[in-house]
């Protein structure tokens, strides 16, 4: 299983902070997420049919942004930790 964590507005919208999913890529994890929590779809995807993520949605796998891995095709294996964040900042 892969532990998928959601933060900020995504946590509020889904009503949960994390789910365990049996998935093998980041894309399949996100697909499963928005299928389970329909209201997350417009928060995560700009165009779901094209599988285009919304601007500034951040997805990390074991602490590394998927922009510096293989993007949505990034492989996931048992025990991986995936985190999804909406646009946010602070400081």
């Amino acid at each position: 299983m892969v532990r998928v964590k959601m933060f900020a507005t995504l946590q509020d919208i889904s009503g949960t902070g994390e789910v365990d999913l049996k998935v093998d890529t980041v894309l399949s994890a996100l697909e499963k997420l928005v299928t389970t929590f329909e209201k997350l779809k417009p928060e995560i995807f700009e165009d779901y049919r094209q599988r285009q993520l919304k601007d500034k949605i951040k997805v990390m796998v074991n602490g590394t942004n998927i922009d510096y891995l293989a993007g949505l095709d990034t492989k996931l294996i048992e025990g991986d930790r995936m985190a999804v964040f909406p646009v946010l900042a602070g400081g």
């Binding site: 933060f7 900020a8 602490g63 985190a83 964040f85 946010l88 900042a89 602070g90 400081g91």
Partner: peptide
Amino acid sequence: GGTLNTYGTDALINVINEAG
């Protein structure tokens, strides 16, 4: 209603923690 307005600057705790 954006993230700073909703959660304050402390919204960074989780993202910086997740980034290790």
